[in-house]
Structure formats: C-alpha cells, structure tokens
Amino acid sequence: MDILRQCILFQNSSDSDIKNIATMMNPCHVQEGESLALKGNKATSFFILVSGMMLLELDGGKSIVMAKPGDFAGLDILSSKGTYCSSLTALKNGEVLTIKRGDFLDLIQEDSSNAEQIMQSWSEHISNELPFLEVPEDDENQYQY
C-alpha cells in the first residue's frame, strides 16, 4: 500500500480504495534489458515501479527514465484502441507492480469518483511533470472510463 500511496495517481484515494487496488496488483521481478511493453502491442498491463529503473520510450525520440518508487507507465490500457503507444524496458533489475487491463477497467467503471480522481491526477501529472508529452485524443484513442 505504501508504493500505491507514492504513485501520484492514487495519492488522493481513500484508504479503502487503496486496499481495493492493492488486491488487484501483482508483484513482478524484472531483469535488466527485459521488455515489459512494446509499442503497437496489445496493452495488457499497467505498471508501478517498486525498485530498479525503467525506460519509457516515446514517439519522436523522446523518453522518460522511471527511477522513483511509485513512477508508473501503461495507462494505454484505458484506450479503446487497446495498444501500447510506447515501449517500457528495465534498465536495472527490480520489481514492478502490475494490474491487468480488465481489472483496471473494472476498477474505474465500478467507482466513478475514484476513476475521476485517477484521471485528474494523471492529467495534472502530464501537465506539470511531462509538458513535452502530447496525448492525442482521436477516435482511435478514446478512453474507456
């Protein structure tokens, strides 16, 4: 639960929401060089960094290094297109928490106030921390919440 609290998406979630989310998370050990998500592949999981270091490769040669517990990737699971728009690779051995696409969709569809909070936190995070990141909203990338 501490790692979930460190993730900006869940910082304002209630204790009961955090407990619910925690039950859906699966710990996964990763090895240096391991690919967790490949651009264009079916988006199956959302990732939260516990330890180690990850590289999120974006379009246009841009990238983000994830090195802080609570950093996250994979909200592509919410798009109607359902494919990853970036690639995620382990730069160091470590651990991530994963949640499967169906479980995450169930979570946000069952609890609209929590879903709104998660999406608002995500939007603020992109605006404040990743201003260079463009999030296209077209018919292929409509979000399912």
Rank of each mutant, 00 (worst) to 15 (best):
L130C: 12
G61V: 02
Q144S: 06
V96N: 10
Q6L: 10
S113Q: 09
V30H: 10
D15Q: 14
L133Y: 13
A22S: 15
A37G: 08
Q120L: 11
I8M: 09
F132R: 00
P131S: 01
G74R: 00
D17C: 08
F46H: 05
C7I: 01
A73T: 01
N128Y: 06
A37E: 07
L130Q: 08
E137R: 12
L88R: 03
A67N: 12
D17L: 03
E34T: 08
Q117F: 06
F46A: 03
E124P: 01
L88E: 09
K62V: 05
I126S: 01
K19S: 15
Q109M: 08
F72S: 13
I99G: 05
I77Y: 04
D106N: 14
L107C: 07
R101W: 05
L130S: 01
L55G: 06
M1Q: 13
L9H: 07
I99N: 02
D139E: 13
E137W: 10
E137P: 02
Q117W: 01
S127N: 06
N114D: 11
A22P: 07
S13N: 11
D103F: 02
P69G: 04
G60L: 07
I77K: 00
Y145C: 13
M1D: 14
T83A: 05
G74I: 02
S121E: 10
R101Y: 05
F132D: 10
K81D: 15
T98I: 08
M53Q: 15
P27F: 03
I64T: 03
D106Q: 10
G70P: 05
K62W: 03
T83L: 03
F132S: 06
R5I: 06
S35Q: 07
E116K: 05
S51A: 13
K39M: 12
V50M: 03
E129W: 04
Y145S: 11
S14W: 03
S16L: 13
E34I: 02
R101G: 04
S35Y: 15
K62C: 08
H125T: 11
S79A: 07
M66L: 15
S87R: 01
K81E: 15
Y84M: 06
I18W: 05
L75V: 12
N12M: 03
E34Q: 15
G60H: 11
S112D: 06
N20G: 15
V96Q: 09
V135W: 05
I21R: 03
L97T: 07
F46P: 07
T89F: 08
V65Y: 10
D15G: 11
T23Q: 13
S123V: 05
I77P: 11
S87Q: 04
D138M: 00
S112E: 12
L91H: 08
D59R: 00
R5T: 07
V50E: 12
S13H: 12
E95Y: 06
C85E: 11
I48K: 04
A90E: 04
M119P: 04
Y143R: 09
P69C: 03
S13G: 11
A43Y: 06
E32M: 09
E134P: 00
L56P: 01
G82Q: 03
L36V: 06
G74W: 02
S127V: 13
W122M: 12
S113R: 01
Y84K: 03
L91N: 09
F47Q: 04
F10V: 08
E129N: 14
D139V: 06
D103N: 10
V135M: 10
S80P: 01
L133F: 14
T44E: 14
K68N: 13
S14A: 09
M53T: 04
S51G: 08
L107R: 00
F104T: 06
Q6M: 10
G70K: 01
D111P: 05
